[in-house]
Structure formats: C-alpha cells, structure tokens
Amino acid sequence: MEHSAERVVDTVKADRRRVLIITALVAIPLIAWTLTQMSLLSFGTQILNGLSFGAVLFFLASGFTMIFGLLRIANLAHGGFYLMGGYVGITTTLVTGQFWLGLIAGGLAIMVLGVFAERVLLRRIRGLVKPEVLLTIGLTFVIGDLSLAMWGGDPRTVPLPGYLKGPIQIGDSFFYPKYRVFVLGLAIVLAAILFYIDRRTKIGAIVRAGVDDRETVAALGININAVFTIAFMFGAFIAGMSGVIGAGFLALLPGQDFEILLFALVVVIIGGLGSLEGAVLGAAVVGLIDSFAKALVPELSFFTLFAPMAIILMIRPNGLLGKAP
C-alpha cells in the first residue's frame, strides 16, 4: 500500500515536470520573438496587463472550480451569479458610499442565492449532469432577466473610492491604473487564503478528502451534505464578489453572464477542473495570452482564447494540472 501510494505521487510529480518542460519549450521562443516586436517597457506593461486581467479571471474561476471540485456540479449559473452580485454591489456602494461594503454585500447576496439554489434546487438532482445543465441555465435566464428589469440595460460600473481611482505615476511618463494593481493584490490574497484553507485547516482536509472519495468521508461520520452546502456557499460568495470587482474593470451589462461563464470555463479547462493550482495557472496563462495576442496578432484575438484551450484539451484531456482520468 505504502509503496503504491509513493509511486502515484512519483507519477504525479513526473507528470507535472513534463507539463513544466513543455510549457517552457513553448514559452521561451515565444517570449524571445515577442521582445523583438516591442520595447522592454511595453513588454513589462503587457505582462502587468495580462496578470491583472488574469486576477479578475482567477476570481471568476476559483468559485466555479471550488464548486465543481467538490460537488461535481458544472454550475452554469456562475455567470448569472457574477452579474447579479455585481449589480447588488453597485447599488450598495451607491447607497452607502462604501466600496468595501458593496464588495461584501455582492458576495453575501449571492451566497444567500447560492444556498437556495443548492439546498432547494440542485440537491434534488444531485449527480444528474443533464438536469443540472438545464436547471443552471434556467437559473441564469431568470437571474439575467430580473437583473435587466431591476437595473436596466445601460452598462454600469462600480463607483471606486478615491484611493483606487486614477493612475499610479512613476517618473514623468509612466502611468498605470491603481485599480488593476489593487485587483492583482486582492487576487493574491484570495489565493493565499484558499491555499491556506485547503492545506492547513480541518475543513480543507475534509473537502480534499471529499473530492477524492466521498463515500469514505461520509463513512467517517462527517455530514457530507453540510460540507457540500458550505462549499457551494463559499463558491457563490466569491462569484458575487468577483462581479463587484469585475464591475470596476469591465462594466456590467445584460448578456455578460454567458460571456463571463465562458471565461471561467476556459480558465478552469486550461488549468484543470476542480484544481486550485489549476485555476491560478489557468488564469495567468489566459490573461497573458489575451494581453499579448491582442498586441501581436490583433486579427486573431477571438481565436487566442479558444484555440489554446482546444489544443491543450487534445493533448491533455483533463487540463494542464487536472488529474489523469
């Protein structure tokens, strides 16, 4: 037993090493070529652009991947959660004048919605992929339409506090938006918290065990349903919060729910479904590809998100860091 477990760990390690080597082999010549195309300052700025956009993507993807990892539900209402969370956040910020309150309110509102969706709706069809698809898409329609009725169709942004508005100025001529730096920092904090919960706390251990083998966890006398609800709540909270964060970045408008869902899907597919490291890696990769592709091959900008995803899936059907089937 011991022996085989070690071997599994070894194969996983070898597998990751292979991924790293291949990534490096692709990335190094690409970077070299890119540097011949733009100045070093531009190159640095584009990296920052890619990472800060990746930070927004990480917010989107982490909630999705958490719910999928444990509950095995591909929550297609994730984009709807994002949209409505963003709208609630905007209204709260406008009423209270506090951006942070808006951020929390957006998260909490969607958490409540998430608990309703999980306990009342999704629990009745657990494990049935097709009904889940229909139900979560149905939920997206309802959420999107009610949001349109309540908040109208004009593009909306969240009012930012003064210290997050405008650019940071370095020297005479270099400007960079404060908000992008803030989002990048916030994403790093969120990732750290998630990793800490995952690796160092009891609930993290239970969740990880639940991902691998639910029956055993249930046999240990842990209420797996409660764990599911908590995971869904937390995932929904992050989804709602990411709507508020995204509203300062991309502007909210009807129809964006499906667009956001797509971004989340691309990230978790590239990274590997249900894997936290995968979400980090996927978000960074997608953010960087998007930022550089727009600069270097603008005609292909639609392509650059989906073509790498299709290629990665063909080579590694479970994503870069996903477990082998």
Partner: peptide
C-alpha cells in the same frame, strides 16, 4: 472587447 489594457499600452 472589454479589457483595453493592451490597446492603451
């Protein structure tokens, strides 16, 4: 398109 960082740069 909604992220204009690249184009602004």
């Amino acid at each position: 398109n909604s992220d204009f960082g690249t184009y602004a740069t």
